[in-house]
Design a protein around this nucleic acid. Structure first.
Length: 157
DNA sequence: GCCAACGTTGGC
DNA sequence: GCCAACGTTGGC
């Protein structure tokens, strides 16, 4: 079992939409390192759902991989903002996964809180200059984040 | 809105 | 293959 964190801007796709849809294809990732992590995901892996580029950035819920090794269909769609003219159905460039909703956390675990509790060497997310939208989470760090969720005082979101 | 950090592109 | 220019991410 592996653990991950995936970022989404809530104006693009939020945890509320994820809860409504129950499942979605995690399309639109156009960074090779992030794609390589997506390729390593297995059915049943857990992913933290992170809201980025918003007033209070942070982890807002949990999803689970329900299908692995999917071809991202948006790369072939000329009308999609994620269209990639260099990708063809014969040799696609971008793979991804389908995820299913698990839970929306009662409180956000804010980036500020995560920075307080974790060192940059344990959690990629709080490493300076990090821009990865898909990243691995070590199992022990995953457990500690879940405990934070239970213990963290109510904060606004 | 600013800007640091970083990835990508393309000329050479 | 180098590297300057440019575009994007995303916190603040």
């Amino acid at each position: 079992m592996n653990y991950w964190l995936m970022k989404s801007e809530p104006t693009t796709y939020s945890i509320e939409e994820m809860r409504r849809d129950r499942t979605c294809i995690w399309d639109g990732v156009r960074n090779y390192m992030a794609r390589n992590f997506l390729q390593q995901m297995k059915v049943g892996d857990f992913c933290f759902f992170y809201h980025s580029n918003t007033k209070i950035p942070g982890i807002v819920g949990l999803v689970r991989v329900s299908e692995a090794h999917l071809v991202d269909p948006t790369q072939f769609d000329e009308k999609s903002p994620y269209y990639d003219p260099k990708a063809t159905p014969e040799s696609p460039r971008w793979q991804t996964v389908r995820v299913e909703f698990v839970e929306r956390f009662p409180q956000i675990i804010s980036l500020a809180e995560l920075k307080n509790y974790f060192d940059p060497d344990e959690l990629l997310l709080v490493r300076r200059g990090n821009r990865l939208s898909v990243m691995p989470i070590a199992p022990d760090i995953y457990d500690r984040i879940l405990k934070l969720k239970l213990n963290s005082p109510a904060n606004p979101w």
